[in-house]
């Protein structure tokens, strides 16, 4: 599903040394995988996630998404894939504060080509156990509930892949466990999940753990 080879990204700033965010990374993710990418702060894991999620482009190397070379795609084609094939879950939730949970979940549908979208937001909110609170704004929800709304938003277009960047980073352990359980359920229902974290305990829930240090992928660890 995702095939990356010799991928590198360097950030250059004026009057500063270049930062090699990711270097010569090669990895393959198959449909239905639950992969954790683990690394300390500044290791390049977020840069890798942004590239995997088509939010950023590499300087060199090859990235094939569903067999198609990403570097040959237009900006609009990348936006369309983000809309229909990828769901994002961020550490800071990134919910819009002035609108309700349901309206937040509906955001990806605005840009989708689907014709019949009625009831989709309610269904995914029910899936994450928040149907009763769908008319509440994010200020009226707890951190765990906000992250569940964010997961519902990531799921609403029924994407193949869920990309989660430190999804439990801003949550207490109880809420964190709830979120991880949701990811495990989604994985068992066939979703491909890529989880970025610095926490080995969280990563241990994945099938496969990839360690990244100083922008380089160290080894693959298979978790039974």
């Amino acid at each position: 599903m995702i095939s990356i080879s010799n991928l590198s990204k360097t950030y250059k700033k004026e009057n500063a040394q270049p930062v090699f965010a990711v270097q010569n990374i090669t990895l393959h993710i198959e449909r239905g995988d639950f992969t954790a990418i683990v690394g300390p702060s500044g290791s390049g894991k977020s840069t890798l996630m942004n590239i995997l999620g088509l939010l950023d482009v590499p300087d060199s190397g090859s990235y094939q998404f569903e067999g198609k070379e990403v570097s040959l795609m237009t900006i609009d084609e990348l936006a369309d894939i983000r809309n229909s094939n990828i769901g994002f879950v961020f550490q800071q939730f990134h919910l819009l504060p002035k609108i309700s949970a349901k309206e937040n979940v509906e955001l990806p549908l605005i840009y989708s080509n689907r014709t019949n979208i009625g009831g989709m937001a309610e269904n995914v909110l029910a899936q994450v156990g928040l149907k009763e609170r769908m008319h509440h704004t994010s200020a009226e929800l707890s951190g765990g509930q906000q992250q569940r709304v964010a997961i519902a938003r990531a799921l609403v277009n029924d994407p193949d892949i869920l990309l989660a960047d430190e999804p439990t980073g801003n949550l207490d352990s109880e809420s964190g466990t709830e979120i991880i359980n949701i990811f495990k359920q989604l994985h068992s229902s066939g979703k491909t999940i890529i989880l970025i974290t610095h926490d080995m305990n969280i990563a241990s829930h994945a099938q496969k753990i990839l360690k990244i240090v100083d922008g380089k992928l160290l080894n693959h660890t298979a978790v039974s």
């Binding site: 939010l55 936006a79 369309d80 229909s84 994002f88 990134h94 990806p108 840009y111 938003r153």
Partner: peptide
Amino acid sequence: LRKAVGAR
């Protein structure tokens, strides 16, 4: 965020 979820 809008761009991340697919806005052109």
